[in-house]
Amino acid sequence: MTSPAEHGAPAEHGAPPAEEGARRRKVVVWQHDQARLQHDVIGLGDVQSDTVYGRLLVRSLTRAQLGLSLMCLAIALAVIASLPVIMALLPSARKVTVAGLPLTLVILGAGIFPVLMAVGWFYNRQASQLEARFIDLVDPVGRRLDA
């Protein structure tokens, strides 16, 4: 198990992050009966000690998460918000009927729901993969041990 780094007091916003010297640790890893040394790895320790690299890592994570969220939101909004505009610009579209039912009824009453579910499902998958990749990046050995 990786020895947990000292969880120091969280740094104040605006205060400079911990010195770079803090990240130069040798981490001793025990795996079954082998001992391995990992040198100067930028990873979980930086996040815990709030170093420059730690902040960079966390920022890259949140940026990726936000990017994914906003992309999926944009897709959902594009579908939802475009319908009134399209209907307004194409009056003939309102007259279309599907099996005797107005197109509006078919879309808003049933057709749009699978689209919403698909966006949600896609987001969940991508979000889990994103988090798994981050864990792999930051704490690869620990992740395997944790399995």
Binding site: P10, A11, H13, V47, V58, Q65, F134, I135, R143
Partner: peptide, 15 residues
């Protein structure tokens, strides 16, 4: 403690 809170909200469960 803004960074602390960001960690708390966004760090994946495994970590």
């Amino acid at each position: 403690h803004v960074e602390h809170m960001m960690l708390r909200m966004h760090l994946p469960e495994g970590l």
